[in-house]
């Protein structure tokens, strides 16, 4: 895939919506585009994280370790992103991401990530929106579980 096609692809990612084309091109040029085979892990719970991934194609399962074994908490699909918590808060990876269908992802290093969010507030807002969604999901799941337990 040439860089021009890649820029076209990135234009479709909501996270990068409203980014100027030449910035997208810089992002594509300076970021690694990685292909993961099924079964490979993007990240592993407890490891140190130094990058986030934006999924350009394929699918992966997000699991967390529980006393009763790994628990699937979400799925990662095209245009989704993962790994931002570890680089935002400097904490170890909070979940394990295992590829289900051959997956291509843009690897954005911590340094580039901070540069992008400070330069492009729209990207920061997009990430906030996603994080808020996830928090909302978690809250809903929590109250559902409480209701079941009660």
């Amino acid at each position: 895939m040439s860089i021009h096609e890649e820029v076209e692809l990135l234009k479709g990612v909501p996270l990068f919506a409203k980014l100027e084309p030449n910035k997208l091109k810089l992002l594509a040029f300076t970021s690694e585009r990685l292909t993961f085979a099924p079964g490979q892990e993007l990240c592993h719970q407890g490891d140190i994280g130094d990058a986030m991934y934006v999924v350009l194609g394929g699918a992966a399962d997000i699991t967390i370790d529980t006393p009763s074994g790994p628990l699937k908490v979400a799925e990662l699909k095209k245009n989704g992103f993962v790994g931002e918590i570890a680089i935002l808060c400097d904490v170890p990876r909070t979940a394990t991401v295992t590829v289900r269908e051959t997956l291509t992802a843009l690897k954005i290093t911590k340094e580039l990530f901070f540069r992008m969010v400070t330069e492009f507030p729209t990207m920061a807002v997009e990430i906030m929106r996603e994080l808020a969604h996830r928090l909302d999901d978690t809250n809903r799941q929590l109250s559902a579980m409480r209701a079941r337990a009660a």
Partner: peptide, 9 residues
């Protein structure tokens, strides 16, 4: 040969 770019790990 050369490692192919963009192959995870």
């Amino acid at each position: 040969g050369r490692l192919v770019y963009g192959q995870a790990q």
